[in-house]
């Protein structure tokens, strides 16, 4: 196997007494799509800022393309495309002006950038908005432009911090489609997210983070297999009765989580389990059989849901 593009060992970042990132290790290989999944405050964005060679670390080692980002910031950043959590486009400038100016920061020639802009406008589906001021764009368009901007220098690695947070479902799907294309082109993607569906869609491999530490690592399907059952039966009995029937339910399955609004029952065969509950005359008000997701993995690992 070739050397990883990113190699992180014992990475720790403290802000005063608060430990934002607590000794994490991971590698990212060339062409891989790697995710950091965790709730807000898990230390994902802090890790990303360190990977982006803009923030310093308290201890540990980080190597990006064989270089320490803290010592060789500009050299490392020359190979990165960065899409921050909050769009930091220049709202007073137009779409193409934003792309052009950003390209100039990489010292790229006018000719190269002009050609690249056409390619990126098409990729971001913003051809018709090329001369529109950025402040007039929708949230989804701004997000696509920020991603396009990150690609202007043809980076080896694209870092995306919460790429679809704050977007409506349709805009999210358009964005996923764009990112999937990049993945197909062999661009190495590193992204953070607190949406398990996003992680499942986009990541070949991911780490689950909580309180600055890595709880588990693997492919989405591998993690589900390891930490959850094949199927999940979600039953609701009304908020008062959920707790009441819990002891009886727990006898029927391998594992169970009682959430305020519903009970999650982990099983290999959801329909059969539901049948069993009906026979016991427990009569849930609603029931749903679904496949296990990363949300269930997170719940298993931390006892909490991703979005609280």
């Amino acid at each position: 196997m070739s050397k990883p593009l990113i190699s992180v060992r014992g990475l720790t970042k403290k802000f005063g007494d608060f430990t934002a990132v607590d000794g994490i290790d991971f590698d990212v290989a060339k062409g891989e799509s790697f995710g950091l999944l965790g709730p807000n405050g898990a230390g994902k964005s802090t890790t990303m800022r360190i990977l982006a060679a803009t923030s310093t670390r308290t201890s540990g080692t980080v190597e990006i393309l064989d270089k320490d980002p803290e010592l060789f910031g500009p050299l490392v950043r020359a190979h990165l495309g960065v899409v921050p959590q909050q769009d930091n486009l220049d709202g007073e400038l137009t779409v193409t002006e934003n792309l052009y100016i950003y390209g100039r920061y990489f010292g790229l020639s006018k000719k190269f950038i002009k050609g690249k802009i056409e390619e990126l406008l098409e990729f971001a589906q913003l051809e018709e908005k090329r001369d529109v001021k950025v402040e007039a764009l929708s949230g989804g368009m701004k997000r696509r432009l920020t991603i396009a901007r990150g690609l202007v220098s043809e980076p080896d690695i694209l870092l995306l911090d919460e790429p679809t947070t704050g977007l409506d479902p349709q805009a999210r799907h358009i964005l996923w489609d764009r990112l999937f294309r990049l993945k197909e082109q062999g661009v190495t993607l590193v992204l953070t997210t607190h949406f398990m569906d996003e992680a499942e869609q986009l990541c070949d491999r991911l780490v689950v983070m909580d309180n600055g530490a890595i709880m588990a690592e693997g492919s989405p399907s591998g993690l589900i297999k390891e930490y959850s059952s094949k199927e999940v039966l979600e039953v609701r009995f009304g908020s008062d009765r959920n707790k009441e029937v819990a002891p009886q339910l727990s006898q029927m399955c391998e594992r169970m989580e009682t959430l305020p609004d519903r009970v999650l029952m982990y099983t290999e065969d959801g329909e059969a389990l539901l049948e069993q509950i009906m026979q016991a005359k427990l009569h849930p008000t609603t029931s749903l059989v679904r496949r296990s997701s990363l949300e269930d993995v997170f719940l298993r690992l931390t006892g909490r849901t991703l979005i609280e």
């Binding site: 020359a78 920061y105 990489f106 790229l108 220098s153 043809e154």
Partner: peptide, 20 residues
């Protein structure tokens, strides 16, 4: 990467890119 990024050049002229 074949975009033609010249880091030493950016280190010399970066402030001018920002100014412009």
């Amino acid at each position: 990467m074949n975009a033609g990024i010249d880091v030493p050049q950016i280190q010399r002229f970066g402030a001018l890119y920002i100014a412009s």
